Every structure is written in structure tokens, then in C-alpha cells.
Amino acid sequence: AHNPQVKAGVAWYGRLVGEATPLAPKHPVDVAGTLNGPVLGLYGEKDGGIPLDTVDKMKSALAAGNAAAKQSTFVVYPDAPHAFHADYRPSYRKEAADDGWKRCLAWFRANGVA
């Protein structure tokens, strides 16, 4: 939202909402409508730190935003916890991680980044 040269982004289970603090005055949901490129969000259904209702809030904020924001999309992996792509943690889920990586690369190619 701050850099006009950004063509697209991928969020791997990043927090979307929260209270404003001096170090984090805004969160993704607060700037969703003014993105310079679409975002692919990859989230786990069983992520205890990022409830699915916050993913829904982000989807709504994007849908109400500018043209780039409206092109964003989300994938929620069933039974996947937080950090499902971190192959060095017990939360790693190979199938979801592999699918997410393929989607990530395809997303950047489709949006002129890679």
C-alpha cells in the first residue's frame, strides 16, 4: 500500500488485524483497500493465532477497495496450523506447503513479478 512499484504480494499466514500501537499503527486490514498490487493470502484453517474471521475481515476490506485489492485471493488449507510452510517445525504440513509454494510462484508470474 505504501510503495507504488509493488506489483503483487503473497502473505503466508500473516496477522491481519490488531490494536494500533506506536510500533504498529496500522495492520493489513487497515490498508487493504489501497494496495498497489493484488495479494495472495495463504492461511491454515487451524491457525490458533489468526482466526478465520480475521481472514474474512480482510477479504471484505479487499473487496471494498481499489481495483488491485479486488484482484486479491485467499487459500485456506484444511487442518493446517500456523507456520505450515516451516519445514523445521512440528507444524509443517508438506502437502499444504508444496501447494502454497506452487501458488506463490504462479501468482508472481501471473502478476509480472517473476
Score class of each variant (00 low, 15 high):
Pro81His: 12
Gly33Val: 03
Ala80Ser: 06
Tyr88Trp: 10
Ala97Phe: 04
Val17Glu: 14
Thr34Arg: 12
Val55Ala: 05
Gly41Ile: 03
Phe74His: 14
Thr34His: 11
Leu23Pro: 02
Gly41Met: 08
Ala11Met: 12
Ala1Thr: 09
Ala97Glu: 02
Thr21Lys: 06
Pro28Cys: 01
Pro38Thr: 11
Arg89Glu: 07
Asn66Arg: 07
Gly44Phe: 08
Asn66Cys: 05
Pro51His: 10
Gly9Lys: 10
Ala68Gln: 14
Gly100Asn: 10
Pro4Ser: 12
Asn111Gln: 05
Ala8His: 09
Lys94Glu: 06
Asn3Phe: 14
Glu45Ala: 12
Lys59Phe: 02
Arg109Ile: 10
Val17Cys: 13
Gly65His: 13
Ile50Cys: 10
Glu19Thr: 14
Phe108Trp: 07
His2Thr: 10
Phe74Leu: 08
Ser60Gln: 15
Ala106Phe: 07
Val31Tyr: 08
Ala106Gly: 10
Gly112Glu: 12
Tyr88Ser: 08
Gly48Gln: 15
Tyr92Thr: 04
Leu105Trp: 11
Ala1Glu: 07
Ala80Tyr: 04
Pro81Glu: 12
Glu95Ile: 06
Ala64Pro: 01
Pro25Thr: 02
Gln71Met: 13
Thr21Phe: 02
Gly49Val: 10
Asp99Ala: 14
Gln5Leu: 13
Leu52Val: 12
Gly49Lys: 11
Val31Thr: 14
Arg15Ala: 06
Val6Met: 12
Ile50Gly: 09
Gln5Glu: 15
Ala8Glu: 09
Asn111Ser: 02
Gly18Lys: 03
Trp12His: 10
Arg93Asn: 13
Val6Glu: 06
Asp87Ala: 07
Gly65Thr: 12
Pro81Val: 11
Val6Pro: 00
Pro28Lys: 00
Arg109Met: 08
Tyr88Gln: 08
Met58Arg: 01
Ser91His: 01
His82Glu: 09
Lys70Pro: 02
Lys26Ser: 04
Ala61Gly: 05
Gly18Trp: 01
Pro90Asn: 08
Ala86Phe: 07
Asp56Trp: 00
Asn36Gly: 10
Glu19Lys: 11
Thr21Ser: 13
Ala61Asp: 03
Glu19Trp: 03
Phe74Cys: 06
Ala83Cys: 06
Asp30Met: 07
Arg103Pro: 08
Ala61Phe: 00
Glu95His: 09
Pro22Ile: 12
Val31Glu: 10
Cys104His: 14
Thr21Glu: 03
Asp87Thr: 01
Ala61Leu: 02
Gly65Tyr: 12
Gly9Gln: 14
Asp56Met: 01
Asn36His: 15
Gly49Asn: 15
Arg93Ile: 05
Cys104Ser: 15
Leu42Glu: 08
Ala1Gly: 10
Arg89Gln: 10
Pro78Trp: 04
Pro38Asn: 12
Ala20Ile: 04
Gly18Ser: 06
Gly100Leu: 03
Asn66Glu: 05
Ala64Tyr: 02
Asp53Phe: 11
Tyr92Met: 02
Pro28His: 04
Ala80Met: 02
Glu95Tyr: 03
Val10Phe: 14
Ala61Lys: 00
Val10Lys: 15
Lys59Asn: 13
Thr21Pro: 01
Asp98Tyr: 01
Cys104Pro: 01
Lys46Gly: 05
Asn66Tyr: 06
Asp99Met: 04
Ala80Phe: 05
Lys46Phe: 13
Val31Phe: 05
Gly33Leu: 03
Ser60Ile: 12
Ala86Tyr: 08
Gly37Lys: 09
Tyr43Ala: 07
Gly33Asn: 05
Phe84Gly: 05
Val113Asn: 04
Val31Trp: 01
Ala32Cys: 05
Ala97Tyr: 06
